[in-house]
């Protein structure tokens, strides 16, 4: 990685970690009263943070059939009892992914990804090394369903050139495939709206559907961002700086939401 420790790990100007900026940026994308299907890890951390601050009426759904959990003790996965502690509903795929997501009432799908390309297409199925050798990983699970059907999709991931290629090695979950509109693609959901990385908050151009820069995290230079991205980003002349998490957001993240630092490394 060509990026200095200062910007990638801990923020140069303070003691705030990039992962904490990501979690707070993710939380700010979630609005009070919305319905969100969340994956484990940073999406879950960000949704809990939103709920504990500006969005107390956010409905958080897990694909296994869980609503509004208060996760504790760092779950290892969605079916870990720790992830569905004190939920308001336990049901199943058919309820969460069928009668909510497929029904069209889920505002936000909040996902992690192995690779995301310039049109927001997501790969979670396989990686190809330089010789073309394929290694399989986890596959879709609910990822394709969420990306197809949620009104908008937020992806949160580490910013590395190989994770942000021009085209994904396997198109597991569609964004704006080939730059086409979601209607043309026969998809009901609105598609990707944000990609939040440890360097920037990215969005998508309304006409070309190509990924664009919305804000850079404090201390990150635009040259670094370009160097670490595998396709040409749309870069505005004036790029705002991503706001740092507030003192209260940091306290919640560090003391209550992820005290062991399992996700906020």
């Amino acid at each position: 990685m060509p990026v200095t420790e200062g910007t990638k790990g801990r923020n140069a100007q303070s003691d705030i970690r990039a992962s904490e900026i990501m979690a707070a940026a993710g939380a700010r994308e979630l609005h009070d009263g919305e319905v969100v299907v969340v994956g484990l890890g940073l999406p879950e951390v960000a949704s809990v943070l939103a709920k504990r601050t500006h969005a107390p009426r956010l409905a958080t759904l897990l694909e296994v059939g869980v609503m509004n959990p208060r996760p504790k003790d760092t779950p290892v996965g969605l079916p870990d009892s720790r992830s569905f502690y004190r939920a308001t509903c336990w049901s199943g795929f058919l309820d969460v992914m069928g009668m909510n997501l497929h029904r069209g009432v889920v505002d936000v799908g909040f996902l992690g990804a192995l690779e995301v390309d310039q049109y927001g297409n997501i790969n979670t199925t396989l990686v190809k090394d330089e010789s073309g050798k394929i290694r399989y990983v986890n596959g879709s699970a609910g990822g394709n369903d969420v990306a197809s059907l949620a009104k908008r999709v937020i992806v949160i991931m580490r910013h590395e050139k190989r994770k942000l290629p021009l085209a994904v090695a396997h198109l597991t979950s569609p964004g704006f495939v080939g730059g086409r509109s979601r209607q043309e693609l026969n998809l009901r959901g609105g598609g990707p709206s944000r990609v939040i990385t440890d360097m920037a908050v990215l969005g998508f151009d309304a006409n070309t559907h190509v990924m664009s820069v919305l804000s850079l995290h404090p201390g990150v230079r635009v040259e670094e961002l370009v160097e670490n991205t595998g396709f040409p980003l749309l870069i505005p002349n004036d790029i705002p700086t991503t706001p740092l998490p507030s003192t209260e957001e940091l306290r919640l993240l560090r003391e209550e939401i992820d005290p062991k630092g399992a996700h906020l490394k």
């Binding site: 199925t125 879709s140 394709n144 059907l149 396997h170 198109l171 693609l185 026969n186």
Partner: peptide
């Protein structure tokens, strides 16, 4: 019928 899977390599 389902509305997932469209436009995917799956």
């Amino acid at each position: 019928p389902i509305k997932s899977l469209f436009a995917s390599e799956i």
